[in-house]
Each structure stands twice: as C-alpha cells, then as structure tokens.
Design a protein around this nucleic acid. Sequence first.
DNA 1: AATAAAAATCTCATATAGTGGAATTTTTAA
DNA 2: TTAAAAATTCCACTATATGAGATTTTTATT
Lengths: 287, 287
Amino acid sequence: MEQYGPTLRKIRKQKGLSMKELAKDSLSVSFLSKFERGESDISLTSMNQLLTRLNVSFDEFLFIHNDYSNQAIDLFFTRVHHAYLEQDTVKLEQLGANEKDQNHLILLELYVNILKNEDSNDLQLNLEPLYDYLFSVEVWGYYELKLYNSTMLLMNPEMVLNLSHTAFKKGKRYHSFRDYKNVMASIFLSTIIYLIGPVNKGDEMVTKYEADILKLFSYIEDLKLEEHETHLRIHVRYIKGIYMIKKGQVEEGTELVNHMISILRELQCENNAADFERYLGLILKGK
Amino acid sequence: MEQYGPTLRKIRKQKGLSMKELAKDSLSVSFLSKFERGESDISLTSMNQLLTRLNVSFDEFLFIHNDYSNQAIDLFFTRVHHAYLEQDTVKLEQLGANEKDQNHLILLELYVNILKNEDSNDLQLNLEPLYDYLFSVEVWGYYELKLYNSTMLLMNPEMVLNLSHTAFKKGKRYHSFRDYKNVMASIFLSTIIYLIGPVNKGDEMVTKYEADILKLFSYIEDLKLEEHETHLRIHVRYIKGIYMIKKGQVEEGTELVNHMISILRELQCENNAADFERYLGLILKGK
DNA sequence: AATAAAAATCTCATATAGTGGAATTTTTAA
DNA sequence: TTAAAAATTCCACTATATGAGATTTTTATT
C-alpha cells in the first residue's frame, strides 16, 4: 500500500482546512484521520472528491507526493536522454535494473548497443518489438508519442514515415491535452529533417519524399498552433527554410532561416540559435 | 461511486492488453473484470499500479474519462474568463449554480457585479474573503496562482503588490511543475503593468513603485526561463520596453517594443501583435 | 494555569473491496 | 467449424475501507 495519506494531510494543512471541513460530503472524519496517518488505503472515488475540494489535480498531488519531481513517464525519457547524451552506459544499465516495462527495457538496450558499437559498422539493432508495439496500439497516448519520438532516429526511413503518419492518425483526439502539441509537432519536424536526408548527400531523398514532406507540413497546420506557441512557430519556419534550400530556393530559404536564427539571438536563446546555425552551415556546404 | 472502470477498460483495449496481463502482480482477473464493468470501486494504490502498467498518467486518464476535456481547475477559469469577455452575466450565473467552492462563488459574484455596474461609479466590491483565503494558505499551488491571476485586476495596488510578493514566496517549490512558470511569469508581468499605472495618468506610480518593479523583474529572472519559452521571453522584453518609455527613455523603449511586435508579426501572431501595438499607442499618447 | 472549544484519534461494528477457484459464456483466430 | 483465449459469473472467504460515537489531544482565550 502506497502511503498517500500523509501527503494529503500536508496539503490540507497548507490550505488551512480541518479534517471536518475536508471530509464534509465525502468521508467520515475518523476514516480520514486513519487514511492521513497512513493506516489505510482509500478508494479512487473518495480521493478524487478530496482533491476536488482541495482544488488540487491528481498530477499536482503526485508531484508533491514524489518530492516535487515530475511524472514517471517524463522522468524516464528525460533520464534516458541525458544518460545517452553523456554516453553513460552505466547509468543506462542502472535505469534498466528496476525496470519492468518491456518497451523501456528494449529502448535501454538499444541505446546501450549504440554507445558500445559506435565505431564498428556491424551494428544490428532489433527494432521489431518496438514496431510491433507501436502498430498494435489503437490510440496513441502521451506515452506512445514520447516512445516514438525518442526512438525514431534509430529507425529506417520507411518505418519513420509510416509511424509518423500513424502518429497523426492515432493521436487525433488528444489535441487539447497539455503537452500533446509539443510532442506531436516535434515528431513531425524531426520526420521532415529525417526525410530531407543527410547533409552530405545529394537531394535524392527530398525528391523521393516530396509528397510526404508536404503532407507532414500539413499535419503541423492541422495542429492549429496557438499564438503563444511561438517556439514551435519559429521551429516550423526554420525547417521550412531548410526545405526550401534543399529544393533549390537557396536564397529565400537561407534568408528565412537566418531570420529565425536572428530572432532566437535577440531573445538570447543562444544554444538554440547555435544549433540552428550549425545545421544551416552543413546544409549549405552540401549544396 | 464514479464509474472509472469502463474508461480503464477502453484504454486497456486500445493498448491491446488482456485483463490477465494487466492484472498481473496487482489484482485478480475476476476483480478487474468487476471493476471494469463499473460494479466496484477501486483503491488508489491499485489504480496507480494499473495506470503505471499502462503508462498512462492520472491526468491523462481523467482527460479521457471526462470525454477528452481538460482538468476541472483550468476549465473553470477558462469558462469564467470567456463569459466575462463576452459580458455574459447569464453564463456567469449558470456557472455559479452547480458550484460549491466558496472562492469560486465569490469570484463569480465579483465578475457579475462588475458587468452589472459598469457605468455607475458606486461599485463596491467585497474582496475580503479572497484576501483572507490567499493570505491564509501556506503554500500556493496551481489553483491559488490561477485564482490570484484572475482577480488581481480587481484589487487595489497595495494589495496586488503584497500578494505578488506572496506568490513569489509561497510558490517557490513548484518551479518544475508543468504550467507553473507560465502562470507565475504572467502574474509578475501583470503586476508590473498594474504598477506602471493608467496610461492617461502621469508617471507618479512608476516613480513611487520603482523599487517594486525592479524587484518583480528580478523575480522573473529567478524563474530561469528555458530557451524554448520564447513567448514569455518576448513578453518580458516587451514590458521592459514599456517600462523604459515610462521612465523617460522613450526612444530606446519604443524601439524595443516595436522590435517585439515585429517578431510577433513575422510569426503571424496577429492578435498578440495588435494588442501590444494598441497598448504602446496609449502609452505614447500619454507622454 | 484553567477552561472551553475545536480538532484529531481510538474503538468497534459493518459494508464492501478484493481473492481464488471453477464453471460458463463470449470472442478471436485459424 | 472448431479450438483456444478472453471475459464473465458465481461462490465462499478474507482484508480493509468506512461510519458512529466515545475519548484524547491540541489550540485558543482569559
């Protein structure tokens, strides 16, 4: 039994409510006392009533319960991402130690394999289980989007294309869920970058996948980005510029990209600006 | 008893899991069946185990359960805001009908009073209960921030100042919670606008509250905005420009503000740009 | 320090959440 | 059509969530 009670007590006290006031309409004081002391579990219905009365959402409650750290799902992907960037295979293996989820274990193994075989060319990744999972799920939730987003770079173009379309189709109903648009847009933009092809290669891929790239831009349109989602707006325009360059409109494309970079500079987003600039340089050198 | 079971079933099916697989390690199949058919409540601990296995957060679960609409807290404030903008007193009164929360009722009454007495000058608002509540709560959560944010414009300057400082002090631990920074920054920025004073008046307020305004800018610094939070970055610079104008640096201030407006235009944030421009016009006319 | 009021805990009775197994029905797949 | 898998139903049983009222602890006030 998880000890949710004490956390609830803490929150109740912070809001200056007595047990009587909180329990009103949903529970007896005596039971609330027992629960708050960690001596009993509570039903989902009762808990929901209590949290509603306290004006605290489940996620906020769990955020406090987990010592002011975020959701398990985000936490896992963030940790993996960091460990990978730091090439910390030990950390990755540690993360796997307490893990029961099959997908998570696969993902960790993939990353460890990549880090360990970085130089050798005979790297064979087994992505089948991931494909199977992502194709079998009927509606993609937040988790599936994150899972795909953090593994797409390991997949081959055909699969990426296929799954990005799938993401669009299977994720539709979530439009208004908090972080959804961000992950979705990020998936589509990464897909486009992927399809534009390696910077040092020719433009075969752009030509081959032209229809798909346009489709992906239309998916982003479909997200109907809000005016306050300026970061995504900047990112979209930037990728459009890159695409134009690859398509031959070198001058207009470069101008658009540089414009976005200058906006980022003005807002002191130095890292972002530098990343954008570096990639632009590579693209232009390939021309 | 809320019927959470059927929603869980729906999600389980979407993910292609059998009851046996889902129940493993946490529940018996026969009970899971009973729960999923809405014939029994479930303990918070069990539910958490099930959702963890499904890789679905509580908020995502409730989002689906509530027919793909968002959190109760946000929903309330959004609805009130819309009804107020549309001067729809009937809608506001409707919102109050099913409402049990004391603060919500106060807030609704305030808005109705404002709309009904718009022309007459003898409007007397009783904000005491709100002050009492906000001062009595030890740690401000998401709800308190939203509540304050949506009522601060009705309060007098001294109170706003006091409560904005309170927001900073009492909200500290939440830095990493999802929407937190947004609401927090929005509070500080609104406070600065408030302290800069009415556009048609002189600059007494800017002078009087100079130290406070600088303090508020430092609070925003303290939030350590991420590079991807470009919307807030734009907003902060815009307000800085307005402040410079009020302080006498008309030229530099106007330049900065116009710069931000032009960025918004480039990103096709037409409404935001227009709002910013309108306010700039008023400020400059007052000079 | 004394006292009253409010808040929280404890005791015990009861309702119901949850288990396990076996038989039955429904769904799925080949 | 048929066999296997998945889900439901029924039952007997245990664990525990919850409520009512008595008791103790805390808080506030003089």
